[in-house]
Write a protein that binds this DNA or RNA. Structure first.
Length: 593
RNA sequence: GGUCCAGUAGCUCAGUUGGAUAGAGCAACAGCCUUCUAAGCUGUCGGUCAUGCGUUCGAGUCGCAUCUGGAUCACCA
């Protein structure tokens, strides 16, 4: 039983004994006492006033006296208005600490054969351009979510759906044919995804020029778009692709390989991975089949021009196109096909899509359609809808070149980490390999924490002109604390033979133990609410608490042997918990920095 | 226009089923390294929690209305 539960139980008994009021212990939620008052846990007594027929403070005192007399955990209490502040005794805290210390996988629930299987789809890039900051948020959230669900005892399958087909790829392919002169990533010395992205931009540039020319010759915008030979060629290429034309297919395969090699490198640096990757080129036909099946069953209908639609007006939504008049499939069709393949491949209990909130409508529709098509899990699919990353001026726009590239950003973060380390002279004793390793995880730690500490549902702002901080509420702050503890432990090794029972605790140690005791419930809440930010905020609070302790409580100089030993072991457990919590965020922590 | 999301300090963000005088970091200013790593610690400054009404012993948190910003409602993905 946790400390909170013990106190809640005792409070329920007190209320029953004093006022004859029957309440469920789970209805009493003790909260951490605010810093400005003495005590560890606080009971709010307002709900009991009707039964006590006394003033708030008198009621609090009465319950406090009862608890002090009957609950061995309660050492002292004080009452302020309707708030009963309880100080718990040292023995309880020491026992709590020992239990935490003994649990090597503290806060982690192992999966069993009966555990539910959760599939998490994240990343989901297009193959016509490199990953940018928006993808970075997606990837970090998806990976972290997987880690958090694993820590909550779920079996997790990480998946990625690569949008490797469609008109956008054809644009890059066409541009490469026209202006590429047979260039390859090797020859250009450029990552494949960036090379393809450059050709996509080149297409857009030439296309715009063509449109401008056509409009100058007196055509309207619409007429110009129709008359554009570039666009016609791109569409023709897509038709040849769909028809299985060998030349187009082999060009497509080659260029996609370039992109994947580039993506793989970005994923590796970012520290994310996947158990199974799906490609839309393999799923869109399955989706088409399902839609035609739905058409036969009367779930969908066909218009005169041959296009296929679903009528969702009964569910408060609109009509939704599922197959174009030329028979080709759209985004939604592909997602239906992908869903079917996945459920054929895995016994999925829960499906989570990590996709931006701009697609809230899409997933509402997808959920309804899957349900109508007879997928029994359709209704319960989870759209993990996260907010956009915006610049101070607003949305990132690829056409205006304001997109923050993922590779560039990682490079910049690592370079900054290097500069800061050099400036502080922190890594002068390290080998070049160590410097490389430490600056990489510190730079990435700053980036990852910056993104993950924000509530995923909210839009967030990134200002490229201001570099991401390394001081204060940041990843490096957390990593630094870990490194400092490791450094301490290199100098003095904890001796488990020394008894800590007699240590007389200061409020610093108690606050730390209490914070550590909170960890499992934070992991559980992060899993329930799909929020890596809760883990980030927790580990920040823990680290802040530890730094105060570190500053105020000398360890090596402490003459009380038991207390010295406790502080040492407490430090070791804090370091372990920092590492465990940050691993749920995909952040590594160094032993020195 | 319909639907959905958001609005907390100059800036970036917390605020756990409604609880005490709304918290951090950054920025600014002032302190603390002969002591376990100063990427740290301490202090000062900074708020009509968008606005109004309501529910409640108690509202940043719940409800209604208004204002502002964003997203979406494509034969784009």
């Amino acid at each position: 039983m946790s400390i909170e539960q013990t106190i809640a139980q005792a409070t329920a008994e007190a209320v029953k004994a004093l006022y004859g009021l029957d309440i469920d212990a789970s209805a009493v939620v003790p909260q951490t006492t605010r810093k400005e008052f003495e005590g560890n846990l606080t009971i709010v007594v307002f709900p009991f006033l009707k039964a006590s027929h006394k003033a708030p403070e008198a009621t609090a005192v009465e319950i406090g006296e009862y608890l002090q007399a009957h609950c061995p955990a309660v050492a002292r209490f004080n009452a302020v208005k309707g708030f009963l502040n309880l100080s718990l005794n040292d023995t309880l805290w020491l026992d709590t600490f020992r239990a935490i210390e003994a649990d090597e996988r503290y806060g982690f629930t192992e999966a069993t054969p009966d555990s539910q299987l959760v599939m998490i789809e994240y990343s989901s890039p297009n193959t016509n351009k490199p990953l940018h900051l928006g993808h970075v948020r997606n990837n970090l959230l998806g990976y972290s979510l997987a880690q958090i669900l694993k820590a909550n005892g779920y079996k997790v399958v990480k998946t990625n759906i690569v949008n490797d087909r469609g008109i956008h790829i054809c644009k890059s392919m066409l541009a490469w044919q026209k202006w590429g002169n047979g260039i390859t990533p090797e020859k250009a010395g450029v990552k494949g995804d960036h090379l393809i992205g450059d050709f996509y931009v080149a297409f857009d540039k030439h296309y715009k020029a063509e449109l401008a020319e056509l409009e100058a010759s007196g055509k309207s915008k619409e007429e110009a778009e129709q008359a554009s030979t570039l666009m016609q060629e791109a569409r023709a290429m897509l038709r040849r692709w769909e028809a299985g034309d060998e030349e187009v297919r082999s060009l497509w395969a080659m260029m996609n390989e370039w992109v994947y090699a580039g993506f793989d490198e970005t994923y590796r640096r970012l520290g994310v991975d996947f158990d199974k990757i799906y490609y839309e080129s393999q799923t869109y036909l399955v989706g088409k089949e399902k839609v035609l099946e739905g058409l036969e069953k009367g779930i969908m209908y066909r218009k005169d021009d041959g296009s296929v639609w679903a009528d969702l007006t009964a569910d408060g939504l609109d009509h939704k196109l599922l197959l174009r008049s030329d028979g080709t499939s759209v985004y939604m069709t592909q997602d239906i096909g992908t869903a079917k393949l996945r459920y054929d491949d895995y016994p999925i209990d829960r499906m989570i899509y990590v996709v931006g909130n701009e697609q809230d409508y899409h997933f509402k529709v997808l959920s309804l359609l899957l349900d109508k098509l007879g997928f029994k899990w359709g209704k319960e699919l989870v759209h993990f809808s996260y907010g956009m990353v915006e610049l101070p001026e607003g949305k990132m726009k690829s056409r205006e070149g304001t997109v923050v590239d993922a590779d560039d950003l990682m490079d910049a973060m690592i370079a900054t980490a290097k500069d800061v380390s050099a400036e502080l002279g922190k890594l002068d004793e390290c080998t070049p390999d160590e410097v490389e390793y430490i600056t990489r995880i510190v730079g990435l730690g700053a980036l990852k924490y910056f993104i993950l500490k924000v509530d995923p549902r909210k839009n967030m702002t990134f200002n490229p002109k201001e570099s991401i901080d390394f001081n204060g509420n940041t990843g490096p702050f957390i990593q630094y604390t870990h490194a400092r503890i490791k450094s301490l432990l290199r100098k003095v090794t904890p001796d488990s033979g020394i008894d800590i029972a007699g240590a007389s605790l200061t409020e610093r140690e108690v606050a730390l133990i209490q914070r550590l005791a909170d960890y499992p419930s934070v992991v559980a809440e992060a899993g329930r609410s799909y929020s890596p930010a809760l883990i980030a905020n927790y580990v920040y609070d823990l680290v802040k608490e530890y730094n105060q302790f570190y500053h105020d409580c000398p360890i090596m100089k402490e003459s009380d042997v038991a207390l010295r030993q406790l502080r040492l072991r407490l430090s070791a457990v804090v370091a372990r918990t920092i590492a465990a919590a940050t691993s749920l965020l995909g952040i590594e922590v160094p032993d020195r920095m």
